[in-house]
Design a binder for these strands. Structure first.
Lengths: 341, 341
DNA sequence: CGCAACAACTGAAGCGTTTCATCAGCACGC
DNA sequence: GCGTGCTGATGAAACGCTTCAGTTGTTGCG
């Protein structure tokens, strides 16, 4: 099938190409009657604007890019990404933007992707996830002048707009709650240690622990998989100063930890309290239900997309560089209780 | 920053634009020395082909589209999509293809997306998921002549290439196994009833049940969420002819079902055996570990992407219209056992 | 030596849009 | 009657690339 072009539309409506273009783009310069005729003609022959031609003549691509610097295999593990994506999509869909995703093997590969997206004029803006310490992506994006929004922050994002939540407050709330229950030794099964948000949570937990008089908080880093979550739990539970509560950086590891406790004949929550960062259906559905730090990930994604669209529309001249979304809030369930004496 | 164009490259290398184009595209017509000079020049000034211009002059977009006709909220629930996507990406990355995803609210919306992708020249090919009965997408894609590969089949895919697994064999294996353990009443907590693969599994289970002398197989359909999985389980377990084994269409529902059994003081696997379709870390990590139908979803996705690239390259003249990947195989774990008398 | 064949390279058209300069027609005021 | 300003419309350039028809310059061959 041959695709109709704007000149087909113009011909059918009996006007010039430029008149048709004006009409189709809702710009002034044509009478209402003509506009009507053009729109009808376009509709009748099923015309769609050729996006390549539009881009070539200086328009926008209506595509947002998102590179994901995680091993593809670990993506499926946690619902976070998919929920984020679905939130992003929900905002992008209305103005007709599409999301281009690319899984990359490393941050270096991601830099290449950004360069080529920029050079090839492929995207109008970029969503950056999984920020690391001294992340070279920030500098590159600033240098290229590619509109971008960082999922995370507020520190280490350079001059890039970003959307962040107060993880420290959530960490403090959690530690405070456990301290109030009587816990004095806490373990933490964290995610990838080079991710900035992991580090930030590490710090926040440590700080909150001293504040609330926690004796020890031991941190073990993992790759977010259930397997490593189980290993980390075993390590924590076999240490001489066994913790009475463990915090996990996602729900699958929390479940794995619960199974390890079971193996070791420790019952949850009597012998061991468990808290998961990021709530999920899993936490709600399992028995005992897992106390979790819940946040609306889809809304988070939606806010990111909105901010990016703003940045793209105003060409970077956006008033609000850092947008804060509500901090995760603690949802106590049956996996936490006062420790057994 | 101004993006360099091919004429900058040509100028720097001291050749004409067309010579530069030939050199950059690896086509014959320039000497090796010239080619070398051009490539170096391009590299030095950081040239990237403007994809819009390339597309406009008849090239390919190097983009694959995938519309997902599920409510955005249910996407995060199961790792299937993300694993599929990561498999697809792994193949697409090498030849420099990107994946454009769009979550759509309905099949109708998806048809619109296809029309506009086609009209706007946005994608080279399309991956179709979640096929339904009498799916209008098949007809539209055939009509538009857009290269497409269906995830599913082998029935009801029209003339479209497709990648499928023998779900019926997997269903039979599962029922055979349960029958051999001594189960005579089986429940099935299925996914969305209008999805073709749900129907196919329904049929396959029913057929295998008669073959293996199962007395009854009761099916309840859900939306794949843990909540509905729990409700369905309650319904099955309170029926007068209570099943001694339940098959779930994903792992989160299997976990939810296990919790419901716990609520009702039924122990797994003594009083109730549980099997999940599609293995996941969750099934392995939870206690008791859940018997599952495992398949390599990433490899499935990779095969889909490969086939689509073939179709795109050969413009539909591909030799193998239907590609079969290995059927899911049953991985027995601790959630299945002979039923208590 | 003259011509064909060929390799290496160039010029220009064309892809479908947007946009800017221009223009016809018309009403208005002096 | 004529300049001015406005509305509605047109023509053509420009975007960056690919490709095809030509144009050189060189080699081979009878």
């Amino acid at each position: 099938m041959k695709r109709p072009t704007i000149s087909d539309v113009a011909q059918r409506a009996g006007v010039s190409i430029s008149a048709a273009s004006f009409a189709l783009n809702g710009r002034p310069g044509v009478s209402d009657r003509t506009r009507q005729r053009v729109l009808e003609a376009a509709d009748e022959i099923g015309w769609h604007r050729n996006s390549a031609a539009r881009v070539l003549s200086g328009g926008t691509t209506n595509v947002i890019g998102m590179a994901i610097p995680r091993p593809a295999a670990t993506l499926g593990v946690e619902p976070f990404f998919m929920e984020l994506v679905s939130g992003i999509e929900s905002v992008l869909a209305t103005p007709g933007y599409a999301l281009m995703m690319q899984v990359v093997a490393s941050v270096d590969a991601e830099l290449k992707v950004y360069r080529s997206w920029w050079g090839e004029h492929r995207v109008d803006g970029i969503i950056v996830v999984d920020l690391r310490g001294d992340d070279p992506r920030v500098g590159l994006l600033e240098q290229l002048g590619l509109p971008a929004v960082v999922v995370g922050g507020p520190a280490d994002v350079g001059t890039l707009p970003h959307v962040w939540a107060d993880d420290a407050a959530a960490a403090a709330e959690t530690v405070g709650y456990l301290a109030a229950l009587g816990h004095r030794r806490i373990g933490r099964v964290a995610g990838l240690p080079d991710l900035l948000h992991t580090r930030r949570r590490d710090e926040a937990f440590r700080e909150a622990s001293t504040r609330y008089g926690i004796e020890s908080i031991e941190v073990v880093h993992t790759d977010y998989t259930g397997l490593e979550g189980a290993q980390a739990t075993r390590r924590l539970l076999t240490s001489p100063e066994r913790p009475t509560a463990i915090l996990y950086d996602n729900s699958i590891m929390a479940v794995a930890g619960m199974s390890v406790a079971d193996e070791m004949r420790l019952s949850v929550p009597t012998d061991l309290s468990i808290v998961a960062w990021d709530d999920s259906q899993l936490c709600q559905v399992i028995r005992p239900a897992i106390t979790a730090l819940a946040r609306d990930v889809a809304a988070y994604g939606a806010r990111v997309a909105q901010l990016l669209l703003d940045v793209v529309a105003k060409n970077g001249a956006v008033e609000q560089r850092g947008v804060e979304v509500p901090a995760p809030r603690l949802v106590p369930r049956s996996s936490t209780a006062p420790p057994q004496r």
